[in-house]
Amino acid sequence: MLDSIPSFARLVAELSKFPGIGQKTATRLAFFLLRQPAVEAEALSTAILELKRQIRFCSICYHITEQNPCGLCTSQSRDESLLCVVEEPQALLAIERSHSFRGRYHVLHGALSPLEGVGPDDIYIAPLMQRLGQGDIKEVLVATNFTVEGDATALYLARLIHPLGIRVTRLAYGIPMGSELEYIDEATVNRAVQGRREF
């Protein structure tokens, strides 16, 4: 049916490539755009083009940025001796939102996963090691995800960093804030008990 309206069909096809967006939602979004004034559509297309034109990876930490080096790397108020390693820029943003970390960052853009063909050379581990070699960093906080792949990446990094005499720490895991124990799944409670600590 859509075949007779090629420009519409094309937009639906493009939109349905988005994660979490299927054919139905794509059609709905396309109709929404159709009803919007042309200015809105132009604003959207410009925003998308700008995103691709302006954003690059910071040459120090590999976070996404418009200025190179990024604001986080050039800021004067950050602790030079502390470095937090994350898998993706989204994870960095999550830690920033918590205002709990005042050191610098390093984004790996992935985790080790042999099944998907991702090895140490496919993520930004080499530049991380270069940074550590410069000698200012005293502690590396490994904040990779708590998946099988994230854990393995953390183990790999710990192995690599230890000989440099730098302290390696891992993000703690356990019970989420404001939750009651009885509603937490067993695996999480189990890990929290394993990782208990002294008052």
Binding site: L112, P114, G119, P120, V148, D151, A152, T153, A154, L155, Y156, R159, L160
Partner: peptide, 10 residues
């Protein structure tokens, strides 16, 4: 070996 090691520990 270096690449295998974290998976062995896991």
């Amino acid at each position: 070996e270096q690449e295998l090691q974290p998976w062995t520990v896991a």
